[in-house]
């Protein structure tokens, strides 16, 4: 464990807590993409299949349970909670996210480190996580007025993978044979997808005005 990875995990944890806080306290998921939340639930479900077979540390297992629990409970809130589900703008959140799942699965079947069931699904979860934010970014462009909590959620979610890139650089420099191109490229693509959001987020923060994404 290094400071970059810890910062990344804490930023990631903060992003899900911000979202759960928003949904649980104000009983609203306006501006939140259910498609992105469903993709993230799939990402964690396929990433953490080894939770029962291998144990690294209390921290590792605890964080996996938190990410699994939070992502599935957010999907449950947005689909089935009587008050929250009414605030979900179904008409705007129309990204065909299943068109993201299939290519990621095919790519994982083609490009992976080992051709085993767990490894292919783990690789699939890496590719899917890289693009899982797309429905949310599209929804933000459409709804335009972004409330603070949703903006913070996307900002933290984008930031965590950025910290992970620093972690991979650190591990590459300190651990021999630490070379994982698949993870690195997927993580880089993921962070780059947030680039324009980050630009407008900082602009709004600097000029102290509401976050507006160009149409």
């Amino acid at each position: 464990m290094n400071i970059f990875r810890l910062a990344g995990d804490m930023t990631h944890l903060a992003s899900v807590l911000v979202l759960l806080l928003k949904i649980h306290t104000i009983k609203s998921c306006a501006g939140v993409s259910l498609k992105t939340q469903e993709l993230y639930a799939i990402v964690f479900a396929t990433r953490y299949l080894d939770i029962f077979t291998s144990f690294y540390s209390i921290y590792n297992t605890l964080m996996k349970l938190i990410f699994l629990g939070s992502s599935f409970s957010i999907v449950w809130y947005m689909r089935y909670h009587k008050t929250v589900r009414r605030t979900y703008d179904r008409e705007q959140d129309t990204f065909r996210h299943w068109f993201l799942v299939l290519p990621c699965l095919l790519l994982a079947l083609l490009i992976h480190e080992k051709f085993t069931f767990l490894e292919v699904l783990w690789t699939f979860s890496l590719y899917l996580e890289a693009v899982a934010i797309l429905p949310q970014l599209v929804l933000l462009q459409r709804t335009r007025n972004i409330d603070n909590l949703t903006g913070q959620y996307v900002f933290l979610l984008g930031g965590y993978r950025g910290f992970y890139i620093l972690n991979w650089i650190y591990r590459y420099l300190t651990e021999p044979h630490f070379v994982h191109w698949i993870t690195w490229i997927a993580g880089l693509v993921q962070t780059l997808l947030y680039a324009d959001f980050f630009y407008y987020y900082f602009q709004s923060w600097k000029n102290n005005k509401k976050l507006q994404l160009p149409a």
Binding site: R5, D9, H12, R47, D50, S54, Y56, S57, N60, M63, K64, F67, W122, Y164, N167, R171, E175, P176, H177, F178, V179, H180, T183
Partner: peptide, 10 residues
């Protein structure tokens, strides 16, 4: 081992 470990990450 010559294989480095990746699965210890979240």
């Amino acid at each position: 081992p010559n294989k480095s470990y990746m699965k210890d990450e979240l």
